[in-house]
C-alpha cells in the first residue's frame, strides 16, 4: 500500500536528493576519523568555513563576478555572432563556399592554444578571456546554425512560397523556429567548452576569477580555498545550464 502512495517519480526524486547528501555525510565522517589526509582533501565542514571567510572578505564575490562577467559576455557575443554567420552561410551558397573552409580550419584548434595570440590582440585584461570564450561558442554555433538551416525540410519552403510568405516572415515563422532546437543543443556543448577555456585562461593569465582563485590557492597549498573555487565553478556551470534549459523550454514549446 505504501508503494502506491509514493509514485515512482517522487521516489526517484528522493533518491536523487538523498544520494549526494549521503556522500557528504560519509565524506565528513571519513575525514573526522582521519581516514583521509585533510591537507589534500578537506572535510565539507572545513570547506564551508573557508567559503564563509571568503564571502566575508568579499574576495569570493569579486572572483565569481569576474568569471560570470567574462562567461556571460563571451557566451552572448559568440552566440549572436554564430547564429548570424551560420544563417548567412546556410542561406547563401557563395558565403558558404567562401567561409566554410575557414571555419573548418579554425574549429579544431584548441582555443587555449591561441590564447597568447588573443592576448596580443585583445590585451591581458578581460578582453582576451572574453574573446576566447566567444570564439569557442561562436564556431560551434556557426556550424550548428548552418547545419540547421541546411537541414530544414524543403517542403516547408514550398508551403511558405505557396502561401506567399513575405521575406521577414520566412525568418520569424520558418527558419528561426526550425533551427532553434539544434542551436540549443549546440549551446549546451558550447557551455561546457566555454567553462574549460575560461578557467584555463584564468589559471595562466589573471588576477581575478574563479580560475585564479583555484590556481593561486593551489600554489599556496590552501586546499580548502581551492575547493571553494571548484565548487563555485561547478555551481556556475549548473546555473548556466539551467538557464539555457529554461530558455529552451520557453522558446521551443512544441518539443
Amino acid at each position: 500500500m505504501a508503494r502506491s502512495l509514493t509514485p515512482p517519480v517522487a521516489r526517484e526524486r528522493i533518491v536523487t536528493i538523498l544520494s549526494p547528501v549521503l556522500l557528504l555525510v560519509v565524506w565528513e565522517l571519513v575525514g573526522r576519523l582521519g581516514m583521509i589526509d585533510a591537507r589534500f582533501i578537506p572535510m565539507p565542514s572545513t570547506i564551508l568555513v573557508a567559503t564563509w571567510e571568503l564571502l566575508k572578505s568579499g574576495e569570493l564575490l569579486t572572483h565569481v563576478g569576474a568569471t560570470l562577467y567574462r562567461l556571460a559576455l563571451g557566451f552572448s557575443i559568440g552566440t549572436v555572432a554564430g547564429i548570424a554567420l551560420g544563417m548567412a552561410m546556410g542561406l547563401n551558397r557563395l558565403i558558404r563556399a567562401a567561409i566554410d573552409p575557414l571555419v573548418a580550419a579554425i574549429y579544431p584548434i584548441p582555443k587555449i592554444a591561441i590564447f597568447p595570440l588573443l592576448m596580443l590582440a585583445f590585451g591581458i585584461g578581460d578582453g582576451s578571456k572574453i574573446a576566447a570564450v566567444a570564439m569557442t561558442v561562436f564556431l560551434l554555433t556557426t556550424i550548428n546554425t548552418m547545419t540547421g538551416v541546411l537541414s530544414i525540410d524543403k517542403a516547408y519552403f514550398d508551403v511558405a512560397r505557396s502561401f506567399r510568405s513575405p521575406r521577414r516572415k520566412l525568418y520569424t515563422r520558418l527558419i528561426i523556429p526550425a533551427i532553434l532546437p539544434i542551436i540549443f543543443s549546440g549551446l549546451r556543448i558550447g557551455l561546457g567548452l566555454a567553462l574549460v577555456v575560461l578557467v584555463a585562461t584564468e589559471f595562466v593569465a589573471s588576477r581575478s576569477g574563479i580560475g585564479y582563485l583555484i590556481w593561486s590557492s593551489w600554489e599556496l597549498l590552501l586546499v580548502d580555498r581551492m575547493f571553494v573555487g571548484i565548487i563555485c565553478i561547478t555551481v556556475l556551470g549548473i546555473c548556466f545550464a539551467a538557464i539555457l534549459k529554461e530558455l529552451e523550454r520557453r522558446l521551443t514549446p512544441w518539443r
Binding site: Y156, R173, P177, W254
Partner: peptide
C-alpha cells in the same frame, strides 16, 4: 490557389 500537401507540411513549431 492554395495547396494541400502530402504530409508533414504543417509547421511543427506553430500551434
Amino acid at each position: 490557389n492554395s495547396m494541400v500537401f502530402q504530409e508533414h507540411s504543417l509547421f511543427p513549431w506553430l500551434s
